[in-house]
Nucleic acid binder design. Structure first.
Lengths: 129, 129
DNA sequence: TTTATAGTTGAACAGTTGTTCAACTGTTAT
DNA sequence: ATAACAGTTGAACAACTGTTCAACTATAAA
């Protein structure tokens, strides 16, 4: 599961690699004023990290076509139901997919349109470089 | 002791977690047709993975305000120049930032506007849930 | 030349992540 | 009841990742 916090936090300052000398104080002040609060930044990076795995991207692309059950998703991706289920759980926890139960099946669908938009913008960037 | 005429047991698929049963063949065919090619998908997830770290998000947000040198970025983030430099390298490798050298300083800037767009879309999604 | 500062780099380390495996729940059909 | 299937879950493990540390290059000033 994707952790809320990032690797490592402890940082006692050392002598050889200081960051105390401010070259351009006015610029630093400007960015400090415009920076979103810490929690928002963690939310942002957590959100992007969900897209940062090819299995999850494939799942989202599948669901962009059609609502699908776990078994079909596993088939489409050539993976076990277990592996797919683990990744679907992460997508669920991040509110990117919704579920609908029907008999023995669980059907997954995209939660909203931002997903489509974001993937499209990323594809634009990739295609233009 | 293993008999030397036994050449490995066949590892045909297991019984308990198969993905062979196709429940909805027409949907699977549809998604297969609409799916981008494998390489594109890896590019996509690689691209998003770069955004999936709070340090790199902070650097991008700083540079969205203004061109900045490594020392100032380290100051703004409260990190060592080394740590910042490592992350800037990743941003550089992914064509998200450009550099300009001036004397002892190296100034970094956002490479293009997709970065802004993508972060904005993500913020929309986060703010609406 | 010598000294100081800006920045980069590679190795090492600890924390994180995705898949596998096995066991489990719940629904449907016999 | 019981068998079969859809799906979920936790532990384990290998692969990956971000920061630290130390050593390095390069430019500028004394």
């Amino acid at each position: 599961m994707l952790a809320n916090n990032e690797i490592n936090t402890v940082t006692e300052e050392r002598d050889t690699d200081l960051y105390n000398d401010v070259l351009h104080p006015e610029i630093i002040a400007k960015t400090a004023g415009a920076m979103p609060e810490e929690n928002k930044i963690y939310d942002l990076s957590d959100f992007f990290r969900v897209f940062g795995d090819s299995t999850r991207i494939k799942l989202l692309l599948c669901l962009d076509c059609s609502e699908m059950c776990v078994c079909d998703l596993a088939n489409a991706l050539g993976m076990t139901k277990s592996a797919v289920s683990h990744q679907l759980k992460i997508l669920r926890q991040n509110a990117l997919v919704s579920i609908r139960k029907s008999g023995k099946n669980v059907f997954y669908a995209l939660a909203d349109d931002h997903v489509r938009d974001i993937i499209e913008k990323a594809l634009e960037h990739i295609n233009e470089r």
